[in-house]
């Protein structure tokens, strides 16, 4: 039974990375949005595999259920904008592609540096209560600040959207 967890890891990792690549490479914006959702879902699977079940379902609730829908709303409201002439800064594309080999070097290096001994110590599930205690006892102040951040985002975005409506 020892091969099942690595197998599932490989499947999920393939979903995550392929989804991420598709976001960047697909020409159509809806394709990007959908593959982003897929990548988020695979990421939730990885969280579950790590034993962080609560985080996994928060991930589904927030990223797949809310942020992807929000982005699809953005896509639907802007429509398929006609592509303009290629007028980007001359070094942008080159810099972007130059990152790709860099990325592979980085990945290989981290795999070799880290993966040999250290196994992930997994407590099976039940991470809800430790998490709740940490957030509401040790991190109470950041928790309140988070609400202020959300309020600022909400008011700012509504003001932006409603401006010029009337």
């Amino acid at each position: 039974m020892d091969f099942i967890a690595p197998l599932i890891f490989v499947i999920l990792a393939a979903i995550v990375v392929a989804g991420g690549l598709a976001v960047v490479l697909l020409p159509r914006i809806t394709g990007s949005a959908l593959s982003m959702g897929l990548s988020f879902l695979g990421m939730a699977g990885l969280f579950a595999l790590l034993g962080a079940e609560t985080i996994a379902f928060f991930q589904v609730l927030i990223y797949v259920g809310a942020i992807t829908v929000l982005i699809l709303y953005g896509v639907m409201l802007t429509g398929v904008a006609p592509a303009g002439a290629d007028r980007r800064l001359f070094f942008q594309k080159q810099a972007g592609w130059a990152l790709v080999p860099l990325k592979f070097v980085g990945v290989v290096a981290t795999v070799f540096a880290l993966s040999f001994q250290s196994n992930v110590v997994q407590q099976p599930g039940g991470d809800l209560e430790p998490l709740a205690n940490a957030v509401f006892r040790d991190y109470a102040f950041p928790f309140e600040v988070a609400s202020v951040l959300l309020l600022a985002a909400m008011i700012g975005a509504i003001a932006l959207v409603k401006r010029g409506d009337d």
Partner: peptide
């Protein structure tokens, strides 16, 4: 479970660089 920590970090860094390149 026997998935090494390094594998997760590798996926994480790969995704980060894909995002940055994008």
């Amino acid at each position: 479970l026997s998935v090494p920590l390094g594998w997760f970090i590798a996926v994480s860094s790969a995704l980060f660089f894909i995002g940055a390149a994008g």
